[in-house]
């Protein structure tokens, strides 16, 4: 366990945040009707997409840090035939390409709506393929029982879903509440987006905790190397494990309070914005810890 795992941890979290928020923004976009789209504040979605693209580019750059010979990086897509790592890199590049193209077109209003929709769908599909192949890299390694489980895929998608929803909720709430205009804070479109993303985030958080506990339980009943991993996570790394659960609970409470205040029409602006951001921060920290444990605490079968 050393610093060699940190770039991977940051890459996987950022890539999942980028794909998650890209897809969530898309859902918001497609569920917005034509009339609402005319409004200028609808443009804040553009900023979200720019953010998602930039985060993905940062993730790709960070991923290079863990390589011993980064100059050979262009060769890493050569083994598409058998290596999920090659597939991950291919889909990562495709996602970055289509997300970038779509963001540019959408931001500058270039091309027809159909063209932009096509770019978005291709980007979204590449993003989903990216998260899937990312998880398959680890599931494929039969000799690492804490990786070689279907939960890996489930956890990666849950991370993308919950970070995506929380990020969108946090970004939209800032724009929503920083506008001094009283009519805007009552705007039904903003309220709908905030309600939708925060409810979705809470559902994802619930599933995330449940799945994580089932994953640890699965390790306990697995082969000896899996049992050793579970013992390490709950033993030597027990503090991190507890913090992971604590952070996600605090995050979900903040998210819950945010939703209650929003529904109750209590619009103390600064408080709401702080709640959205701190919920995001706590959950991001919790996901960071569980990803750290995923990469660093593992017992391989064999010698």
């Amino acid at each position: 366990m050393g610093f060699q795992d940190w770039p991977l941890m940051i890459f996987s979290l950022l890539a999942q945040l980028a794909t998650g928020s890209f897809v969530v923004l898309g859902i918001v976009r497609f569920s917005t009707n034509q009339k609402e789209r005319e409004t200028d504040y609808y443009r804040l979605l553009d900023r979200g997409w720019i953010g998602s693209f930039v985060i993905m580019v940062i993730a790709l750059i960070v991923s290079l840090i863990h390589l011993g010979s980064p100059l050979n990086a262009p060769l890493t897509i050569l083994n598409i035939g058998s290596a999920w790592l090659s597939r991950e890199i291919l889909f990562g590049l495709l996602f970055a390409f289509f997300a970038g193209l779509f963001t540019l077109f959408q931001w500058q209003r270039i091309g027809s709506r159909k063209l932009r929709d096509t770019c978005f769908v291709l980007g979204g599909l590449a993003g989903i393929a990216l998260v899937y192949s990312m998880s398959m890299i680890y599931r494929y390694v039969e000799t690492q029982p804490s990786w070689n489980t279907p939960w890996t895929t489930v956890m990666f998608f849950l991370t993308a879903g919950l970070l995506g929803n929380l990020a969108v909720a946090a970004v939209v709430s800032t724009n929503f509440l920083s506008s001094g205009d009283k009519t805007k804070t009552q705007d039904p479109w903003y309220r709908k987006v905030l309600r939708g993303t925060s409810i979705a985030a809470l559902v994802f958080i619930g599933l995330d905790v449940l799945v994580y506990l089932l994953y640890i339980l699965g390790l306990f009943y697995g082969v000896p190397a899996a049992q050793e991993t579970a013992k390490l996570i709950l033993g030597s790394f027990g503090i991190l494990f507890s913090l992971r659960i604590l952070f996600v609970l605090v995050g979900s409470m903040l998210g819950g309070l945010f939703l209650i205040r929003l529904l109750g029409n209590q619009n103390q602006k600064n408080l709401l914005v702080s709640m959205a951001y701190s919920a995001f921060a706590f959950v991001l920290a919790a996901e960071g810890i569980s990803r750290f444990l995923f990469y660093s605490v593992k017992v391989r079968i064999g010698i």
Partner: peptide
């Protein structure tokens, strides 16, 4: 070789 060390993680 790009030095990603995945083979090291996989080989039993």
């Amino acid at each position: 070789c790009v030095g990603c060390r995945l083979c090291q993680q996989a080989c039993p």
